[in-house]
Design a protein around this nucleic acid. Sequence first.
DNA 1: GCCAACGTTGGC
DNA 2: GCCAACGTTGGC
Length: 148
Amino acid sequence: MKSEPDTYSIDDLIAKGGPDIWEGCRNYTVRNFIRDAMAPGDEAFFYHSNADPSGIVGVMRIVGPAYPDPTQFDPASEYHDPKSPPEAPRWLARDVEFVRKFARVVSLAELRATPGLEEMLVLRRGQRLSVMPVTEAEWLGVLALPGL
DNA sequence: GCCAACGTTGGC
DNA sequence: GCCAACGTTGGC
């Protein structure tokens, strides 16, 4: 799950001290992943995009079910979507909680250079999804990289 | 700041 | 339903 650290970083999640909302998804593929590809208790990588370097910085956990993203109905929000029908909200959010921060950033370049991770979706050319699935093998392969 | 990739919009 | 124009993402 990607976030620009200038907007919301893993340190912001740590500072929250408990579950926080993962909001602002405005892409249907991502919406479907949020709805269908995660369940309470699942763990997810926290990825910093547009960062120096961009990469995976830690692990968080999905806390509860998907629910309508409240920002879509908030005219003051940058994520406001006036075309989303209140009786059938377009956009979903999840609550996540902090699990662990890596000792160092596992950068895109390192992911790309690591045998076994070549097929990770985040490395695919032109991919722009902010949430995407990871295989079990990829999960374990990434966890082995940063050390303690 | 550039630009490739790709999603969305809207005219027809 | 096609597709050109436009907007956004995000690495570099």
